[in-house]
């Protein structure tokens, strides 16, 4: 059976057109796409896994705090007086001022960068 030179010769002589020249390139392109898909799927699965574990940890924390430490999650009642209202208004004023200054800083920086970039 190992000899059978007639069969060997026929198989060798029956030549089909060879595989096209860009076969390797096309196959590797598809392999790269598949690898990217695999990488994305693994990333998504990791993300889902991490999210589930995080949720479980939070749930476990809440359960332990509630059951073992009798922790209450209800917010304390807040009574606003005129003095506390003025402090609140002042805080809002300071916050608005900070936001305005940060915005102005960002605007000036961008302008400076654009002018610098244009000069180069």
């Amino acid at each position: 059976m190992e000899k059978d030179k007639l069969i060997k010769q026929t198989l060798k002589s029956t030549q089909w057109p060879p595989v096209s020249g860009d076969f390797q390139y096309k196959t590797m392109q598809k392999v790269f796409l598949l690898a990217e898909k695999k990488r994305k799927r693994a990333y998504f699965l990791n993300l889902v896994g991490i999210s589930l574990v995080s949720l479980l940890l939070v749930a476990a924390c809440v359960y332990i705090l509630k059951v073992y430490f009798a922790f209450s999650f209800t917010l304390p009642e807040i009574h606003l007086t005129s003095s506390s209202l003025s402090i609140l208004m002042f805080s809002f004023y300071i916050a608005a001022l900070v936001l305005l200054l940060i915005g102005l800083d960002a605007f000036m920086r961008r302008k400076w960068q654009m002018r610098n970039g244009n000069l180069e």
């Binding site: 059976m1 000899k3 030179k5 007639l6 010769q9 026929t10 002589s13 029956t14």
Partner: peptide
């Protein structure tokens, strides 16, 4: 079968074998 497939090749046999395969 052994004797047949160890014959020296000839065009007709190769063609027949190709059809058979």
């Amino acid at each position: 079968v052994g004797t047949f497939f160890d014959e020296d090749e000839n065009e007709r046999r190769l063609q027949q074998l190709e059809i058979a395969i």
